[in-house]
Amino acid sequence: MLIFFDTETTGVETSDRICAVGMVEENSPYYELIHPGRKIPPAASAIHQITNEMLKDAPAFADSNSCRRLKELNAESNVLISHNAPFDIAMLIKEGLQWKGEIIDTLKCAKALMDDLDGYSLQFLRYELRLYREEEEFFASFGAGITPHHPLSDALHVKMLYTYLLDLADHEKLVEISQSHVLLNRLPFGKYAKRRIEEIALKDPGYLKWMLESLVDMDEDLRYSIEHFLREVP
């Protein structure tokens, strides 16, 4: 079974927790608010529109229907599909749930299969790939509204993105990409944004070395790519 999945959280730090879950099991949509056991800071609420008042009577993750259902689905035969899957998987691990099945990360797959785009966030891809042209009818078929950063809405956009990616690679290839490092060709930000990393490694390797030393939370694929091209420098 394919499970399209998204979480909203209190933030991105080690101490942050899930405050909402959205998922689509094949054609069955599901959404639930979760009490995270801590306050949601305004910066997080500004993104996903979830407030502390909304969570007053919500269950803790361990007591939630989301937890029960994920445990029922947690089998090697099922596939969890998410945009930036390592983040969502890490959040589940904090709640004591280690996913046993295959994982597809649509963010990593998009980077690997379309390396010339200006961005790879779910909302950027929604417009770059023109998913919006079919989303109204698609969302209506699930009885859901289009609300960016709402976990069910995002899970449905992940489903649309997965279908798009299947035109570029088959399911097995998407699983393979999700399990490996992606060699990025262009730097996504900084003074050399959109320039080829190979070119920067030849002309200004010191800048790339500075990035490796200074940006401790750098995307793992970007770090892998910079290290790869620096090793290739004669």
Score class of each variant (00 low, 15 high):
32 E>Q: 14
32 E>A: 13
33 L>H: 05
33 L>V: 07
34 I>P: 02
36 P>E: 09
37 G>P: 02
38 R>T: 12
40 I>H: 04
42 P>T: 13
42 P>I: 09
43 A>D: 12
46 A>M: 09
48 H>G: 07
49 Q>P: 00
51 T>M: 03
51 T>V: 08
51 T>K: 01
53 E>T: 07
53 E>F: 03
53 E>W: 03
54 M>H: 07
55 L>E: 07
57 D>R: 08
57 D>M: 11
59 P>D: 11
59 P>L: 09
61 F>L: 04
62 A>V: 04
63 D>K: 14
64 S>P: 00
65 N>Q: 14
66 S>D: 06
68 R>E: 11
68 R>A: 15
69 R>L: 14
69 R>N: 05
69 R>C: 03
69 R>G: 00
70 L>T: 03
70 L>F: 14
70 L>H: 01
71 K>F: 01
73 L>R: 08
75 A>F: 02
75 A>Y: 00
77 S>L: 10
77 S>R: 08
78 N>F: 06
80 L>Y: 03
80 L>N: 11
82 S>Q: 07
83 H>G: 06
83 H>L: 09
84 N>H: 12
85 A>M: 05
87 F>W: 09
88 D>I: 04
89 I>Y: 05
89 I>A: 03
91 M>I: 02
91 M>T: 08
91 M>S: 00
92 L>M: 15
92 L>F: 04
93 I>K: 13
94 K>V: 05
95 E>V: 01
96 G>M: 06
97 L>H: 02
97 L>I: 11
